[in-house]
Amino acid sequence: MGVTPLESARENLADVAAEVACAVDSGLLGELWRTSETRAWGLERSEFEEIVCAVGRRANFGLAAGERAGKSAQREFYLGLRLDDLVLAQSCARGNEQAWQQFVTAHREPMRRAAIAITGSASRGADLADLLWAELYGLNERDGERVSPLKSYRGRGSLMGWLRTILAQRHVDQWRRTGREEALDGMDPPAAETDTPAPPEDTDALGRAVADAIAKCAAEERYLLASYYLDGQTLAEVARVLGVHEATVSRRLQRVVKGIRKQVVRNLERQGLSPRRAREALETDPRDLDVNLKKLLQQTQVESFQDRAGG
């Protein structure tokens, strides 16, 4: 009623723009719908496609920002999604009671157990899980509409894993807020000063050499160093996160440390130290490397993740 040709044309253009931006192969969309249709919790096909397109678009089909996803990349991305979980979560977020019942049946107990495991306390775990349940149901409202965090689940990894991660985030953020007011036992002490400092010129050279060596490490290597040396995680804990065996983590750590040592010696030589003096700079007080490593890895990241992800 009362739609001007200009408005109509704008709407059409918006539709076309959305389609171009999404540009998901229609055959693939149909295939995905067929696999999810029977468990779509009343979602219409158009709603399903809208959700799926939004998920793909937001993640740029798992590719780096700016890369264009071809059919095969799109297919690989969508086949890696947990479509069942995605449809269930989105249906819950849209207020489907049947979907919600299914969600409660499948996840309430595991979520409580996860919260207890994360907090290490039955009472605090139960509180944490209950608080999240209330939010998930959508007790918070925005512009008169229920808002559920489930809407932000996009099927990358399991729904239960996503819930665990949210519980862990809430716990860590809560702990970090209250931790400042508590005892300092759990806080990372500042790096200790060395007892027998090396000659100042060598220490400076060593500092620069270590900083350069660490800067050359790959992201995974820096993650290994930070988790193991800075956070004090065990090999098994690091392995669990990376999905590899702890022996693999051990080997990689050894390789990284060895590589850094070699690079440091090389850097020292480049700065004019003789090979012998360069080796001595490390051997005189090997804790220098550790200390500097901590300082380097403790540097705060200024750039946000979203900025780098291009999201």
Binding site: A114, A117, A168, V172, R222, D231, L297, Q301
Partner: peptide, 25 residues
């Protein structure tokens, strides 16, 4: 990208480690 972030963010390392621990439990 995530690894790069985790390497410098103790908070996210802790989140991931706790979630993995709960999954293992």
């Amino acid at each position: 990208l995530v690894l790069g972030h985790l390497a410098v963010c103790a908070r996210c390392r802790e989140v991931v480690a706790l979630a993995a621990e709960a999954a293992a439990a």
